[in-house]
Design a protein around this nucleic acid. Structure first.
Lengths: 345, 345
DNA sequence: GTGAAAGCGCTAACAC
DNA sequence: GTGTTAGCGCTTTCAC
């Protein structure tokens, strides 16, 4: 059995030079259609497949896209759905561009996380890196990546940087909308569970909540706010606190679904009817939101589309025509399900 | 700014030949300690990092490990936790071996899935492939991978192949144990929700259930079996069926956690007290099992350790000393939580 | 439009 | 123990 065909074999069969084969393979211009056809035929006949390593070495770049996100193993399991959605979207863009996805969960709490990232990048030389929140708003992480010169698009960096190469969603506006929706249902005491303080984009949801309150003519009150950390467990703890005060809220809006689900669990345990006595809303629309009883009203954050857009930016940017990609915003949409209803009288 | 240091730069600084540098970098024998030290110093001084592409090209193999699993996007979202655990474990092994993980969800329902896999493999030339269940028991998939000559370890292939390069857990024995545990609690009518028929390892759980019944002196009855497909939704449907018969079961054992959670949701909706009136058990121990109310009694399948073992086998196997790895079995352990209790009288 | 030659940075024989 | 010499299979200049 002969070994794999190389570009030389294709060239020989097609009766052209290897450079022409290369042109065809890379969809470069300046190849006569008839020549291209001959080459394509030869490729098909030989079942030729360009070797990525050789290609990468010669061109000094790879067809790899790195996806960097907070390591779920490093602490209490966050929403795994978050990560899968991200991967999903990035893979989608990679697939159509013959690129591969390298996943790299990393623990930002580790001191040498920057070095680790640099090593990864310098060894594999990815064409670009996608950094998910909350890593995307951490200077330590972003600087480490940028210092390698590798293009890097940040997902939901939170800070209002007008910097390019970011993809976000309208966290604040969507949260305001959810709050107005709750107020429209007659709720006067709408509580909020804040998220991980390291996560800037999630912090904007709190701002949106306040906007929504104001727009609905409702007073903001510290006693209706509990500080969570994005985890299911913190949602449970916050709900217990919020439901303990004298005048309990009639609605709780959590900065993410995991915490909302935690709150729901507490409500169920306490025998509080949802949504009869208490309305509950989350943010993200992870799978869990649909699996709890009652299903959670939430805001669908288009994580997959965000990651897909980011990957596409990286892939495109690398193929010469430097896109003038400003910050991209992909809007989130409110999803009303069973956990919210009219305020009890 | 000078460009990246190469192996030549290191050799020059250390006053040795490039081959010696290569030896040091690859931890090959036959290097005098003092020489090694000089080289290590030079590497540190220059901040040298070997270029993977060049290395791969020259050695005709990469340091990439491919992880192939059923595409969650292709159909009703299965347990995402399953995938994350797999990735987690594989990443663990990769990390310590300076390998990278390439993820490749794929839809086995697509006709050309084999070609797609071959393309992926031939282009990226991974050092090995890990195939997760249920793909690992599909000849179409396994053959496509093996035809490329790439080492491939299968996770939970189900069929009793004495073939090497497989990592499984004791699905059948663990399921028997769970059934005996339920019987020990006094349950006489223990129902079972079967899983995806394409998934051989999950099928063994049904066998284990029957074993457990027999060992406990309980009669097997068709009316106590409902056919699910591993999805949350199918768990709901099966529970509705099972709880509709004249003599309802006092315990339901589902072949996975998603289905058990679905069943729990139905019980909650129907106002059936769990575990007071009905005990519920699952299999896998995904995050969801801990997030529902009451938390699910289940069987912890060590997916992460299985994937880690698989990746380690691939990495080791590639570094010459062809391990004589027989089929590896990593035992699952029963996790008793709140959803099971004594049979009602 | 097409081709020839020169590497990309490393590993693999084999020599010393 | 260590160095020399060829490539690995491509892309890139630059000439035609």
């Amino acid at each position: 059995m002969s070994s794999r065909p190389t570009i030389f074999d294709v060239a020989k069969v097609a009766g052209v030079s290897i450079k022409t084969v290369s042109r065809v393979v890379n969809h470069e211009p300046n190849v006569r259609p008839s020549t291209k056809e001959r080459v394509d035929n030869a490729i098909a006949v030989l079942n030729y497949r360009p070797d990525q390593s050789a290609r990468n070495l010669a061109s000094q770049r790879s067809h790899l896209i790195g996806l960097v996100y907070d390591d779920p193993a490093a602490y209490e399991m966050p929403s795994g759905g978050y990560i899968l959605d991200l991967q999903q979207g990035a893979l989608e863009a990679c697939r159509s561009a013959h690129s591969e996805l390298l996943i790299h969960p990393c623990d930002f709490r580790k001191k040498n996380v920057g070095i680790e990232l640099k090593e990864l990048i310098e060894e594999t030389r990815p064409a670009g890196i996608i950094v998910a929140a909350p890593l995307s708003n951490m200077p330590k992480i972003v600087r480490a990546i940028e210092s390698t010169g590798t293009p890097c698009v940040r997902l939901s960096p939170g800070n209002d940087s007008s910097k390019k190469l970011t993809v976000s969603t309208n966290d604040r506006e969507a949260s305001a909308e959810m709050t107005r929706y709750l107020a429209g249902l007659g709720h006067k005491r709408i509580a909020f569970i804040t998220g991980d303080p390291d996560h800037k984009a999630v912090a904007k949801r709190f701002l949106g909540y306040q906007d929504g309150l104001k727009e609905s003519g409702l007073e903001f009150s510290e006693t209706l706010v509990a500080a969570g950390d994005n985890s299911f467990g913190s949602g449970e703890a916050c709900a217990e606190t919020l439901l303990k005060v004298k005048k309990t809220p009639t609605a709780i809006f959590a900065a993410n679904d995991d915490m909302a689900a935690g709150a729901l669990r507490v409500a169920n345990r306490l025998g509080i009817d949802v949504p009869g006595q208490l309305s509950l809303a989350g943010f993200d629309d992870i799978a869990l939101a649909r699996q709890v009883e009652p299903a959670l009203t939430t805001i669908r954050q288009p994580l997959d589309r965000m990651a897909e857009t980011a990957a596409a930016m990286l892939i495109k940017g690398n193929s010469k025509d430097k896109g003038d990609d400003g910050p991209v915003v992909i809007p989130a949409t409110i999803k009303i399900r069973e956990s919210t209803g009219p305020a009890p009288r």
